[in-house]
Amino acid sequence: MNSPILALDKVSKHFGAIVIADGIDLALSEGEALGIIGPNGAGKTTLFGIVSGTVAPDSGRVLYAGRDITHISPAQRCTIGIGRSFQVPLPFAGMSVFENLVVAAAFGGRRREREVYQGCMDILDRCGLGEKANRRAGSLTLIDRKRLELARALATDPRVLLLDEVAGGLTERECHVLIGLIADIRRSGVSIIWIEHVVHALLASVDRLLVLHNGAFIAAGDPHTVIKSPAVMEIYMGIETDV
């Protein structure tokens, strides 16, 4: 395999007594889609924080396209190609949905404002927000806010896309549409890490599945194999033999 587009190198992170990561290694190849699951509070979102630069690791390195980015700002990480959605949506509530995307495309994509308009509208259409382009983002329902998170992350024109629970709350049909959209995004060459509790959406979309628990990836590999592994059953049945 050629060198990964994104890698974590022995990353550790603790919040007081809570262990989020204990010397974690991770490598995402170009074009790969990786799923991450794990119990509530395992630290999945915090890992995204470490990759996107909003959370500093205690130790270890974050590498992007072979470059050490551990100490560069979230804004720079976005402009070089790491796009992120937030689990708890953080829309620019006082701006229109369209303007939310213009911000992402103009700053995250480092382009002139006028050049991004059409692309932003296309992304909104693909994410099912086309008709709501002129709505104030603060007036959207939770589901639409999640769609906006995905759309805005896409608008930054990422090479690596970090998706944090974008499928929660969708109906079966909407989920199907989302899976199609993710497949589209993958075909355009974007690498993806997707944190999701809606397991069947992950199984349909990712090449590899990782399970985060107690600061380590306790299982990794083919999604269908991993999901049936004893370790995963143990955690999700709640009969774990905790430390």
Partner: peptide
């Protein structure tokens, strides 16, 4: 937070 993660210095 979202501004920073969308490329704004």
């Amino acid at each position: 937070l979202a501004a920073a993660c969308n490329g704004i210095d």
